[in-house]
Amino acid sequence: MQFDSISAFFDMGGYAFYVWLSYGVSLGVLLILFLSSKADHNKIKQQISQRQQRENKLREAAKQQQAQANEHHTLNNPQHTSDETNEALS
């Protein structure tokens, strides 16, 4: 232990301002860098997940549309469908 008391420690032999400025700003900047790096990582994961959700939704919508189109098709050509159904049944 190089210091006799807590106040001597904070005084840093009269260089308190310079020493604590160095340590304070350095640790602060490094902490910001560390946290923002972690935040960036989470953000990109979230972005990818959001895009996936959007793609899934679009795929679902396309499927539904396809199904509706098929239904429409069936209503307009009942003969055709019944043929198909018969085929499937047979």
Binding site: L33, F34, S37, K38, D40, H41, I44, K45, Q47, I48, S49, Q50, R51, Q52, Q53, N56
Partner: peptide, 26 residues
């Protein structure tokens, strides 16, 4: 810190790959 950032860069550059999609299931 470089490891964390490197992993972020990998995800950003490979976001369309199947393994990334599998890794991040919504």
């Amino acid at each position: 810190i470089i490891c964390i950032r490197f992993r972020t860069e990998i995800l950003a550059r490979n976001s369309m790959r199947p393994w990334v999609k599998e890794l991040i299931t919504p």
